[in-house]
Amino acid sequence: MKILEANNGALTNFEVLDFLRAKGASRDPTRVLAKVAQSEYKVYDYLVDTAACDQTRESINEFLKSVKSYDLAKAEILNLINMRPANIVEIFPIIESCDTRFSDEELTEIVEIVKKTFPPPPEESKPEDANSAEETKSSGEEGGEPMERS
């Protein structure tokens, strides 16, 4: 084995997820049929729970365009796309020494750009899902009671 290029380009989480999806990975139970290895499914399962799950190529391109004016390193932009920080405290660890490089206004602007270009992560819609799940559960229990009585 010969390593020709150790670093032939970085990939965002979205790109890896997109690649796995194109290969046939999905959440449905028929996953044994797809030509995707077990280890690839583990990566897929991790990535669908991150912010990458509903990003698109267009939204990432738009984000890259709009943060061009800020003096950010490539790795920082990559990390911003992968983490989708929704407030300043989340952006703090991602950007190195950001309190000296950026003012609070600029950071708020970056957060705004992130929020505008990338849709909110599924966590924010989760409580509703949980409620509906509980509802179905309770309705299921109600449905079960009469049967027990009879």
Binding site: M1, K2, I3, L4, E5, A6, N7, N8, G9, A10, L11, T12, N13, E15, V16, L78, N82
Partner: peptide, 10 residues
Amino acid sequence: MFYLSKIEHT
């Protein structure tokens, strides 16, 4: 987090 690496293998 993810990178592409170009490799030659026989």
